[in-house]
Design a protein around this nucleic acid. Structure first.
Lengths: 232, 232
DNA sequence: CGTACCCTTGATGTTCCTCAATGGAAGTGG
DNA sequence: CCACTTCCATTGAGGAACATCAAGGGTACG
């Protein structure tokens, strides 16, 4: 282990952070951490882009990564937001096509740790449970992605916004709040619409006294049930 | 093995059909087939529905299954079409929530073979490679699902249709054809639109001499590049 | 202190959905 | 095999939802 100390503590931290590894013993996690490398990505910097060859598993140590796709006219569809403990890089696992099909950009200054496929394969052989956990995670993501497709495909924008808000509510002192984890532009991209439409829908919900916009990204939900009902 | 012959040959057939098992030896596949059960589903019959508890892996032996979701107003979003050799049932693998989040309906008279989670877990323990292959498949499906989200989110209907057609082209005698694997209604559901809009877009493409509609589900592509270009 | 980006609101236009009517194909039962 | 029903596909008319273009003010950041 000692010869890896020059990498800093980041590896150990992020390996312990992520559910696919944290069933292992400390010694086992240290072994995995030893195979990891750290990369810092500044806000707005790309971690990878469409078409790039890559066989790396990325684990977010701190910060935030946004995964998106792009069409010919330049419009973005945000696929996923990665927070600390989340990982991506199924490209490294799915063998027959190792090119990225999405862009990954840092939404904040971010630190990721990376494990190369050769090392990961070793770990998977040694600890088959890791494969099971990755499978559980990817399966969960598939569910979320299919739900997103359905939302974008058959719900109107108001419904999509409300469904999104409902996923992010937290309760504080008998009040219900949502702290938006992204700008309206990014929210629009995630919900398959435009910032202008997001803005208008929020205003409309506020006029109906269903929500109240406090700070820019802090929204109070007056009555969640009523809000959900209003868009059916 | 002999005591399983009364199940018929279906099990063996479908276990051999599916890429997640066909790396195994005949004897190993026979063992897995022995744990499978067969179910016949008539056209338009549901295989499972939203909210049902279930811990089964379904492998399509023959026929076709359509997976879809439903919103409160009754609109359908088709998520996936399963053909022989395809499987579904990640619900059986992802542990924490074992309820279906989609409906599965037979688009044709269909035979599926089913493996229960307890048996599957056994197989996964005995042959870790199966987990890797399932992971590869789910990862691939995640890619497709994310692409579908992007299509539905930021492309107009004409683009979605053309992208869909491009995925299904086959060449015959110097002509390019697409045999639509479903009705326009189902295609509309898959593309997040309505049958009327599908119909109109096809007519428009035909007026531009980009396609020609022969039999109901047989479409000739006059020039694929031109067709792709026309919607950019 | 300026610049750039984000958010909001208005005016306008397009896309696509909804409702409705019709013709045709496929399936069903006599 | 034909009459009947049912579903599918097409086309039209109308309208709703949303995108686009444009301009304004607010805010963060160098």
């Amino acid at each position: 282990m000692a010869h890896h100390h020059h990498h800093g503590e980041g590896h150990t931290t992020c390996v312990r952070l992520v559910p696919i590894f944290n069933h292992l013993s400390d010694e086992q996690m240290d072994l995995i951490a030893a195979s990891a490398h750290t990369r810092k990505v500044s806000k707005n910097e790309l971690l990878f882009r469409v078409g790039e060859k890559d066989d790396t598993l990325y684990i977010i140590s701190s910060g935030r990564i946004r995964i998106y796709q792009l069409n010919e006219s330049g419009r973005e569809q945000t696929i996923r937001i990665l927070n600390p403990g989340d990982f991506t890089g199924e490209v490294a696992i799915f063998q027959s096509d190792k090119r990225h099909h999405s862009y990954a950009v840092a939404a904040l200054d971010t630190t990721v740790c990376m494990i190369r496929k050769a090392d990961l394969d070793n770990h998977l052989d040694n600890y088959p449970e890791i494969t099971r956990r990755i499978l559980a995670d990817v399966t969960q993501r598939l569910q979320v992605s299919e739900k997103q497709t359905t939302q974008v495909g058959i719900e109107n924008v108001a419904s999509r916004i409300v469904a999104f808000l409902a996923d992010y509510v937290v309760d504080e002192n008998n009040h219900t709040f949502v702290d938006l984890p992204m700008t309206r532009k990014d929210l629009a991209s995630y919900l398959g619409t435009t910032p202008e439409t997001i803005s208008r829908k929020f205003s409309a919900l506020e006029e109906q006294d269903l929500i109240r916009q406090h700070a820019k990204n802090r929204i109070e939900i007056m009555d969640l049930d009523e809000l959900l009902f209003s868009v059916e």
